[in-house]
Amino acid sequence: SYYEILDVPRSASADDIKKAYRRKALQWHPDKNPDNKEFAEKKFKEVAEAYEVLSDKHKREIYDR
């Protein structure tokens, strides 16, 4: 789930989600993982997609249904 990707509970606040996104984006940024760039790019995209949905109140409500 998007919550698992960002490592936050379903009850996470918008601020918690933003902090988790920043932490995970740094962790999986391809430039930070030169030895495993392809895998890092995949993870980085997953993190971005999760944040896009969970950071938008309307999209998150739909996702949580």
Rank of each mutant, 00 (worst) to 15 (best):
A40K: 03
W28F: 09
A40Y: 08
A12W: 00
L6N: 00
Y21P: 00
E38G: 08
E4K: 11
W28L: 06
Y21C: 05
A40N: 05
E52W: 13
S1V: 06
A14H: 12
Y21H: 04
K45A: 13
A48P: 00
R22S: 11
K59L: 14
I17R: 00
S13F: 04
K59E: 05
A48G: 09
A40L: 05
P9R: 07
I17V: 06
D64F: 02
H29S: 14
K24R: 07
R60A: 02
F44C: 07
Y51I: 02
I17Y: 01
R10K: 12
S11R: 07
Y21K: 02
H58Q: 14
Y3Q: 00
K37G: 06
E4L: 09
E41I: 13
E41P: 02
H58V: 14
D15P: 06
V8N: 00
F44N: 04
A40V: 05
L54Y: 00
P34E: 14
D7M: 06
Y51R: 01
K19D: 15
K42S: 10
S13G: 07
L6A: 00
D56M: 03
F39P: 03
V8E: 01
R65D: 05
I5R: 05
P34H: 13
H29A: 12
Q27K: 09
K37H: 08
R22A: 14
E38F: 08
H58K: 13
K19L: 13
E46A: 10
Y21Q: 03
E61V: 06
E61T: 06
D15C: 10
E46M: 11
D15S: 13
S13T: 14
K57C: 11
K32P: 03
E38P: 09
W28D: 01
D31H: 07
A20E: 02
D16T: 09
F39Y: 15
N36L: 07
K43Q: 07
Y63C: 03
E52R: 11
L26I: 12
I5V: 12
P30D: 05
L6V: 01
P9F: 05
Y51E: 01
D56Q: 05
S1H: 09
I62M: 13
L6W: 00
A20M: 04
K59G: 04
E49A: 09
P34D: 07
E52T: 08
D15Y: 08
L6S: 00
Y2T: 01
H29N: 12
Y2I: 03
K32Q: 14
I5F: 05
L26A: 14
R10G: 05
K59W: 06
I5H: 04
W28C: 04
D7L: 03
N33K: 04
Y51S: 01
D64G: 02
E46K: 07
K45Y: 08
F44Y: 13
A48F: 15
D31I: 08
Q27A: 07
D15K: 11
D56F: 03
E52P: 01
F44L: 14
K37Q: 12
F39T: 07
A12I: 02
K24N: 04
Y63W: 03
K59H: 05
E52A: 14
K32W: 10
A20V: 02
D16I: 07
I62K: 09
K59Q: 10
D35I: 09
A14C: 10
I62Y: 08
A50Y: 00
R22Y: 15
K43E: 03
K37P: 12
V53G: 03
L26Y: 10
K57E: 15
P9S: 10
R65F: 08
Y2E: 01
V8A: 04
